[in-house]
Design a protein around this nucleic acid. Structure first.
Length: 833
RNA sequence: GCGCGGGUGGCGGAAUUGGUAUACGCGCAUGCUUGAGGAGCAUGUUCCGAGAGGAUUGCGAGUUCGAGUCUCGCCCCGCGCACCA
């Protein structure tokens, strides 16, 4: 294809210019009009595709736009460089993860540059480098100091393929988020962060995040999953034990006909003491415990249970109710024990039906008193009137909740309680490529934190690592970290007593690395501290955070947590990291998310060679609303290219023809029209960017203006000055979106310095309004005529004019007018009787 | 199952508080230009109809002078959560 403009010459030229002139270097000390523009830092994988580009392009446009609005913009970039994929790739390619990662970083940097995406590289960070992870370890120590990092033995999610434990957040439908292997349960000693202590604040403060997408806030709220209810104590017959269970439906307590506990319940074994069949029961329980999560966690999974031989007492009916163990009860939520109300809970109903347990109705549909309210085969879960519930009979069940709660509290058989779905954050990983947990185990002193002065705990290089996923596990999948193979690393001295000791061999979840990087950017090169408090307090919260929705829960929740912890310790002065969040949609190709494994990626390198970076940028921004997913189309790219060619030719025409408009011509032109369009476009583009990054509609508005300029040129309907003004406006408005071509044209039109230094144009509000409007005239709601009338005509004049219209006259045909509906400057509707 | 988005031409998608539905782009068609191709330019392009005109925003009803937009019922698609007691 013939080039319609020399993008291959101008793009490298301006990329050099921006970097030489350090136009994106921010002055950290100048915070008067600061703007912290942050894109989620990437994982340095093999190569970027155009799907990744959307994120960086949007970030770059925002940074450029804010710069033109006079802000001191900080736009940093870094690398989320630890993690499993690098380790797996390194094993596969027989190289070291560090080498692999650094090579990828180098390559991705070049790609970003070729996109015309600019950053302040002076604050670059990479989480796998010791000068960064030193401070990740420091944050761990701070949490340890505060009791927010702790070690416990627990049933944890285990991925046998990745050979590591996973956080709850990394288990999707019972499968490993990464490799989709079914996750099993393993009883292991692990490190946790006490994020549950912050559940209430993490939930409550969502309200203050006004400029976060609603759906992200909802996702976080659901994840935290707060529910209010009552904790009820059930005595166990023939045992000292009292079993507590949590319910949100105390109103159904009189219908609790049996009780179920989780197979993992810590008191289960003691409860079974004295039960004849104990050993037989324990075999079944053991089976339930090791059952993979995927089998247990699905709503349609077969409910399996076993009777314990024990009975509990329903504290309100005083009746003996059988105690069962069942796979559908989760130890992680509530107390791990549930009062079962088969009449009003579908799960309990299914279980009761299967094992022939009694079902007792205690709530009935209000309007059909005395009738059985449940559908056959279904529990009645809706609201209604209380029955079979002693003194609470006849009450609305909603009302009864409060009354029963108060009554139980008074009688000390229950207590108000709030439960959360959120669980503590498991941060140990049995993998090599991560930040070592800075802890030492000493025979005498127990768990000892590595003193701050000894940080960083350097990740050793003489380690044998392998992934069982690739069939070459160095450790046979026993769940131990590869760091164990480095004797030099493991053997150490206890920092307290100097005796022989061994180091913690697990590394930290990479989400710990990414939960604070936005602080490090501010003080990237600082050696004695993770960040300068004074500076981060001035620059944060981040003014605009941009990234994919896939991080709606994990990364964003963890970052909020870490910031709240640091804030509470007085280390920073703010308690939310990101004031404004924008989540862009994915780029789809052939109906699927672009990914190397699916083989549907589109490489930017070739496209840039063929059409130039500006074309890719323009198309990426024009493809659709940025928050929605969009299908990539190669045809669309050509369209974007064609438009830029049109802009190029339009500007060239202007530079070629710089003569003054003659007086004679002046008499025949109507400058107002193009002037109006120019000002309307400025308003539209500005509003679109400000109110939600609607670049797609901004671009179409600019296209309209370009079409208008061509028309004006053709018909000679505008003066040279007005046309030149319109052309300049197009270039300025387009410059954040397609910076290379705009810089070049700006220079050609006489711009003395970078267009980035040009102020964003303002519009004349009067000119935004059209002088004449096409007024639709309806009769009885049907469009009958369109009339060209001056804007703002008073009602009487307007009616007169309309009645004089031939078309309207014929439609009226002398009939009576009942009513005039005049919407100023919009339309007129004549209602006939 | 629960929650959140959506459903508008052949396609991606526009439409302030209810006020000309289909902007802008892609594709397609015709013409000009060119040795041809490509590129460019011009015109047209929701559907039916030669035309006048009529129909049209997933389906059905309602409110209104007027509904893509509001209300009710239903259908379909995408996403998130999901045995959370």
């Amino acid at each position: 294809m013939e080039k319609s403009y020399p993008f291959d010459k101008i793009e490298p030229k301006w990329q050099e210019y921006w970097s030489k002139k350090k136009l994106f270097k921010a002055d950290i000390k100048d915070f008067e009009k600061k703007f912290y523009c942050l894109v989620m830092f990437p994982y340095p994988s093999a190569a970027l595709h155009v799907g990744h580009g959307r994120n960086y392009i949007i970030g770059d446009v925002v940074a450029r736009y804010k710069k033109m609005r006079g802000f001191n913009v900080l736009t940093p970039m870094g690398w989320d460089a630890f993690g499993l994929p690098a380790e797996n790739a390194a094993i596969k390619n027989k190289t070291h993860p560090k080498k692999y990662t650094l090579a990828n970083i180098k390559r991705m940097k070049e790609q970003l540059k070729s996109w015309g995406v600019c950053y302040d590289w002076s604050c670059e960070v990479a989480s796998c480098l010791a000068d960064y992870y030193k401070w990740t370890q420091w944050i761990f120590l701070k949490l340890l100091e505060k009791g927010l990092a702790y070690r416990k033995k627990a049933f944890v999610n285990w991925c046998s393929s990745c050979n590591t434990v996973l956080a709850n957040e990394q288990v999707i439908e019972g499968k490993c988020e990464r490799c989709e292997t079914a996750v099993s349960q393993k009883d292991l000693e692990q490190w946790f962060f006490r994020i549950t202590d912050y559940a209430e604040r993490l939930l409550g403060d969502l309200k203050s995040l006004e400029n976060w997408p609603e759906r992200v806030k909802i996702m976080q709220a659901n994840w935290i999953g707060r529910s209010e209810g009552v904790r009820i104590y059930f005595p166990v017959v023939g045992s000292e034990e009292t079993l507590a269970c949590f319910t949100t439906r105390v109103d159904t307590i009189f219908g609790a006909t049996y009780m179920v506990i989780a197979p993992e319940h810590p008191h289960l074994e003691e409860l079974l003491d004295g039960v004849k069949e104990k050993s037989k029961i324990m075999v079944a329980v053991e089976k339930m415990r090791t059952e993979s999560k995927i089998m247990r966690v699905q709503a349609d999974a077969e409910k399996v249970g076993i009777f314990t031989g024990r009975y509990a007492i329903n504290p309100v009916t005083k009746r003996k109710i059988p105690l069962w163990v069942a796979n559908y009860v989760l130890m992680e939520y509530g107390t791990g024990a549930v009062m079962a109300v088969p009449a009003h809970d579908q799960r309990d109903y299914e279980f009761a039906a299967k094992y022939k347990l009694p079902i007792e109705t205690v709530i009935q549909k209000s309007e059909v008193r005395g009738q059985r309210s449940e559908e056959p085969g279904k529990a009645y879960e809706d609201d209604g009137i209380m029955v079979n519930s002693a003194q609470f009979d006849g009450l609305e069940n909603r009302e009864a909740i409060g009354k029963i709660t108060d009554w139980m509290e008074e009688k000390k058989i229950g207590k108000k309680a709030t439960e959360y779905k959120l669980r503590d954050w498991l941060i140990s990983r049995q993998r090599y490529w991560g930040a070592p947990i800075p802890v030492v185990y000493c025979e005498k002193c127990g768990i000892v934190a590595v003193p701050e002065k000894d940080l960083p705990v350097i990740l050793p290089e003489d380690v044998k690592f392998g992934a069982p996923a690739l069939g070459r596990s160095a450790l046979g999948g026993k769940g131990e970290s590869p760091l164990k193979t480095s004797k030099k690393f493991v053997d150490t001295k206890c920092p307290k007593c100097k005796a022989e000791a061994r180091r913690e061999i697990d590394t930290m979840d990479t989400f710990v690395d990414s939960s604070w990087y936005f602080l490090r950017y501010i003080s990237a090169k600082l050696e004695n501290k993770p960040f300068e408090k004074e500076d981060v307090d001035r620059w944060l919260p981040v003014d605009q955070y941009i990234g994919g929705v896939e991080h709606a829960i994990l990364h964003l929740l963890y970052s909020r947590f870490i910031v709240k912890v640091l804030n509470e310790m007085g280390l920073i002065g703010f308690d939310e990291p990101f004031k404004n969040l924008f989540t862009q949609g994915m780029i789809i190709k052939n109906g699927a998310k672009m990914s190397k494994s699916k083989g549907n990626t589109v490489s930017p390198d070739e496209l840039i060679k063929k059409f130039g970076a500006d074309t890719i940028r323009l198309y990426t921004l024009f493809i659709g609303p940025p928050e929605k997913d969009a299908e990539w189309s190669d045809r669309g790219v050509e369209g974007a290219y064609r438009f830029l060619g049109r802009v190029w030719r339009m500007a060239k025409q202007t530079t070629d023809d710089r003569r003054q408009t003659t007086d004679e011509e002046r008499g025949t032109v109507n400058d107002e029209k193009l002037k109006r369009k120019t000002h309307q476009t400025i308003k539209k583009v500005t509003d679109d960017i400000e109110k939600g990054f609607h670049f797609n509609t901004s671009i179409s508005a600019i296209m309209e203006l370009v079409n208008e300029v061509y028309l004006a040129e053709d018909k000679k309907s505008s003066s040279r000055e007005t046309i030149e003004q319109a052309v300049k406006t197009v270039i300025v408005l387009l410059s954040p979106l397609v910076p290379h071509i705009c810089e070049e044209l700006w220079e050609k039109l006489g711009g003395k310095e970078s267009i980035l230094k040009k102020e964003w144009p303002s519009y004349d509000a009067k000119l935004v309004l059209a002088e004449n409007i096409t007024l639709p005239v309806q009769i009885n709601g049907k469009l009958r005529s369109k009339m060209e009338i001056p804007r703002g005509l008073v009602a009487e004049e307007l009616k007169e004019k309309i009645l004089a219209d031939e078309k309207i006259k014929s439609h009226l045909a002398g009939r009576d007018i009942k009513k005039w509906i005049v919407v100023p400057d919009k339309l007129v509707n004549i209602v006939l009787s």
